Simulated assay, not measured.
Amino acid sequence: MNSLNNLNIQPIENGELRKLLQHNIDQKTKPVGSLGFLEELALQIGLIQETTKPELKSPVMLTVASDHGITEEGVSPVPTRITWQQVSNFINGGGGIGLFCKQYGFDLYVVDAGVDHDFEAHPRLIDKKVRKATRNFLKEPAMTIDECDEAIRNGRDIMALFAEKGSNVVGFGEMGIGNSSPATALLSVFTGLPVEECTGPGCGLDQKGVQHKASVLRQAFEKHGVSDKPEQNLATYGGLEIATMAGAMLEAAQRRMLIVVDGFITTSAFLAAYEICPAVRDYAVFSHCSKEYGHVKMLDHMNGRAVLNLDLRLGEGTGSALAYPIIQGSVAMLNDMTSFGEAKVYNVVDETGNIVSK
């Protein structure tokens, strides 16, 4: 795919900087390891930014929206017009994502990747519409390979623009009625898990509805099969918002930005990016573990650990925003927490009997 020709994501290094960061963390006035996952986050962010004094600059939230032809098969109980109505709500500061971005300091933009609606121009709306909704992938691939490539390129272009403006943190979220079906399909395709083990209620299906959704997805797999090329699977079963997010995530990693991933659908985009280039994993923080059934399976596949577990299943990027203060706390701990030397606390030993401060 042309959109991936110049992709070059470097894994975060494991040499002297890692040792120095770990030493600095261990020298803080606390028992070694006592701040748990917070210490791992601080180490990761320092390695991403290649410094012992990382900074979080100009965090941006991208909520990417699209409609889905698979809704023709009754896989969602919610009418598709909700997609464009919620986009209008978000760009005017409404919804959960509008509230939490304001609360936690994110600059919110909504990307129209394929909403079945014509919007008026708005400073918070980024028009990257490839087409009005994907096709019904029970009958034909959701996107052509060229459309998928365009969506990936759009995501990369958007991310490049924000990076060049100085942002080094990006949160991702989504909006799109029916998009738990492509996310479920991608989970099954990329992990090899049976589709029945991946399918959940999405926007509120009952058990009969969940069984119907799984049946629709199974029929689609029987029709199209599974490719050994992740980009082809993304085109066949994905969504325009999912492909756009995947492209933006890849570009963010290439530019050594911190990627904050939301819930089930957003993580399916990250899963696609991971299948395209596994090194992207080093740059991600998974904000929470969704209540949607398949999310934990995605995280397990990528050896991902969630910051929060609050039974969230709203999407939009809300989990990314809610986890951000904890990410900020990890950086503050690394940069500002007193060390044993600064506090003049000496001859401290760890649990193994080794002196950590002299």
Rank of each mutant, 00 (worst) to 15 (best):
E164Y: 09
F190M: 08
N14F: 13
A273L: 05
S227D: 06
S88W: 11
S3N: 00
V170T: 07
S3E: 06
K102C: 13
T244V: 06
L310H: 03
L193H: 02
V210P: 05
A214Q: 00
L108A: 02
V78I: 14
Y324D: 06
A332Y: 15
G192R: 04
P79W: 13
A183P: 13
A235L: 05
P182I: 02
N303S: 13
E275K: 14
S66K: 11
V260F: 07
A113L: 09
H68R: 09
G209C: 01
I276R: 03
S88G: 15
T191R: 06
G69K: 13
L205F: 00
I82R: 11
A343Q: 03
A65C: 10
K344I: 11
E72Q: 12
K132Q: 04
L217S: 01
E351D: 15
T83A: 05
D127S: 15
R124Q: 12
E316Y: 09
I259C: 12
L62V: 06
T51H: 08
K132R: 12
P278N: 08
G263W: 06
K344P: 10
I91R: 05
F90N: 02
N6Q: 13
A185T: 04
A185G: 08
K102L: 14
L138E: 01
N136T: 00
V307Q: 06
I177P: 03
E72L: 13
L7E: 02
V356Y: 09
I70P: 00
